[in-house]
C-alpha cells in the first residue's frame, strides 16, 4: 500500500490481484452475490480515492476490510431506508458458491448468518471465512479485541442453534 501511495501504480494491481477475491467473497457473504461484486469494486475505488487517509505504519488488511465493511453497512442502511428488499426477497437470493459444492449447506449457512445481528455476523465472517485474527477484526471494526471475541462467541453459539438441523437432521 505504501508503494502505491508513493506513486508505484503497479503496486495497486498487485493489491487488487491479491485481495479482490477475499474481499468479494467477504462482501458476498454479507450482502449477497450481485451486490457483493458491486461493493467490492466500490471498496477498491474507495481504497484508491482515500489513500490519503491511510496511516503509515497501520496494517493494510484491517484497513481494507474496514472499507469493505463500511461499504456493506452503507448498502444495508440504504436498503433498509428505501425498503427495497424484504426478507422474502433475501430468502429467494441465489445461493453463492462454486457449482460443485453443496448448495443446500451453503444456503443454510447463508440464511443462518443473515439471522445474526450485524455485529456478530461481521465478526464471524471475517474470522471464519476471511481468516482475519481477532486483533485485525478489532481494528477493522474499530472495537476492542475482547468486544470482538464476545460478539464472535455469541454469534457462534447462535449459529449452532440455527444450524442444528444440519448435523442432527436425517
Amino acid at each position: 500500500m505504501l508503494r502505491f501511495i508513493d506513486g508505484d501504480r503497479t503496486a495497486l494491481d498487485l493489491l487488487y490481484l491479491r485481495y479482490r477475491e477475499p474481499v468479494a467473497s467477504y462482501l458476498t457473504r454479507i450482502v449477497g452475490r450481485g451486490n457483493g461484486e458491486d461493493l467490492s469494486q466500490a471498496t477498491f475505488l474507495s481504497l484508491v480515492r482515500a489513500r490519503g487517509r491511510y496511516q503509515r505504519g497501520a496494517r493494510f488488511r484491517p484497513w481494507l476490510y474496514a472499507i469493505a465493511t463500511n461499504a456493506a453497512r452503507d448498502f444495508l442502511r440504504r436498503r433498509r431506508m428505501e425498503q427495497l428488499a424484504s426478507k422474502r426477497e433475501m430468502a429467494r437470493e441465489e445461493p453463492i458458491g462454486a457449482p460443485e459444492a453443496d448448495p443446500g449447506m451453503e444456503r443454510a449457512v447463508h440464511r443462518a448468518l443473515e439471522q445474526l445481528p450485524e455485529s456478530q455476523r461481521l465478526a464471524i465472517v471475517m474470522h471464519r471465512f476471511q481468516n482475519l485474527s481477532f486483533a485485525e477484526i478489532a481494528q477493522a471494526l474499530e472495537l476492542s479485541e475482547s468486544a470482538v471475541k464476545v460478539r464472535a462467541h455469541r454469534g457462534y453459539e447462535k449459529l449452532r442453534e440455527l444450524l442444528r438441523d444440519l448435523w442432527e437432521g436425517p
Partner: peptide, 19 residues
C-alpha cells in the same frame, strides 16, 4: 456450541471467485 458451529461453517463451500 461454538466449536460445533465453527465446524459446520467449514462444511459450507467457499464463496465464488470474483469475475
Amino acid at each position: 456450541a461454538v466449536v460445533k458451529a465453527h465446524e459446520t461453517l467449514a462444511r459450507a463451500r467457499s464463496a465464488p471467485l470474483w469475475q
